[in-house]
Every structure is written in structure tokens, then in C-alpha cells.
């Protein structure tokens, strides 16, 4: 059971959050200029690392804000959380 520090609200139980996948995937600005493979890369391809992972969470049952976390996908430890637009 994770304990996650929402950058706005502080430490809360995992059940208050919902997971939103890999972070820092910017939506391409001019999507029509991408070829199918490039679009597929944005749409589907994921790093899915075993180890440090930057990911998005939503404090769904709290402040309703998305934020980023750097979490280890093996020991599940959250190294840091930070607001969207910030660097960890």
C-alpha cells in the first residue's frame, strides 16, 4: 500500500489517488506532420522501466490535481513528487 506525498496536500494513502501513467510525454504540437510510426510512438510506446519511473498521479479523492512522481517500480518507493511543470 503506497503512501504518496501530494505536492499540494501532503502524505495520503494510495487509495486517494489514481494513476495516470508515464509522465513527460508531450503531445506533439503539429500532429498532422507526424508519420504513422511517430504518432504510434507518442500514442502507445512506453519506457516501462524496471527501476526509476517518472509518472503522473491524480489526487482524485483530494485536491483533484495531477502531479508527477519519481517512483521505483521494483521497491515502489516514491523518491519525490513534484508539481506539473516543475523538475524533480
Amino acid at each position: 500500500m503506497l503512501l504518496i506525498e501530494c505536492p499540494y496536500c501532503g502524505e495520503r494513502d494510495e487509495t486517494e489517488f489514481s494513476y495516470a501513467g508515464e509522465a513527460h510525454i508531450a503531445r506533439p504540437l503539429e500532429t498532422e506532420k507526424l508519420n504513422d510510426a511517430e504518432w504510434a510512438d507518442y500514442l502507445f510506446m512506453r519506457k516501462n522501466p524496471k527501476g526509476a519511473h517518472r509518472e503522473q498521479w491524480l489526487h482524485a479523492a483530494g485536491c483533484r490535481r495531477y502531479f508527477n512522481a519519481e517512483r521505483d517500480t521494483v521497491n515502489y518507493k516514491v523518491k519525490s513528487t513534484y508539481k506539473i511543470g516543475e523538475q524533480s
Binding site: R46, N48, P49, K50
Partner: peptide, 18 residues
């Protein structure tokens, strides 16, 4: 459970999350 890890070794990404 480890296909992204092996894909990473081979130099490409997969549309997979574990």
C-alpha cells in the same frame, strides 16, 4: 513481466506497461 526490459536491451520500445 520483463519484455520492456528486454526490448530496451535490443534498442526499441514496446507499447507495454507492466
Amino acid at each position: 513481466g520483463h519484455c520492456s526490459v528486454l526490448a530496451d536491451m535490443a534498442g526499441f520500445r514496446m507499447p507495454i506497461e507492466s
